[in-house]
């Protein structure tokens, strides 16, 4: 199964699940990354990390280690 950290810039995906074993899972959910939502990887600045996702009409930066718990 792929995770959001593997998306390419401009690629969209639907969240299938959140991996609860990641300690950041709760905050990830709270900011709106819930199963069924569409996300798009929009930005990957200079150092390639964190990643800028569009979710629920807003932009959220998430470290790729944390984006790993967003399964698509």
């Amino acid at each position: 199964m792929r995770s959001a950290s593997e998306l390419k810039i401009g690629e969209k995906a639907i969240i299938s699940d959140i991996d609860n074993s990641n300690p950041s899972a709760r905050r990830i959910l709270e900011v709106g990354f819930t199963p069924g939502e569409e996300i798009e990887l929009l930005f990957k600045p200079v150092f390639g990390d964190p990643l800028g996702f569009s979710i629920r009409g807003t932009l959220i930066a998430v470290r790729s280690s944390e984006a790993k718990c967003i399964l698509i």
């Binding site: 300690p23 950041s24 964190p50 807003t58 932009l59 959220i60 930066a61 944390e66």
Partner: peptide, 13 residues
């Protein structure tokens, strides 16, 4: 182990 390093922030409009 509890020391979870995290960076999740909203980029405001």
């Amino acid at each position: 182990i509890n020391d979870n390093s995290s960076f999740i922030i909203e980029l405001p409009t």
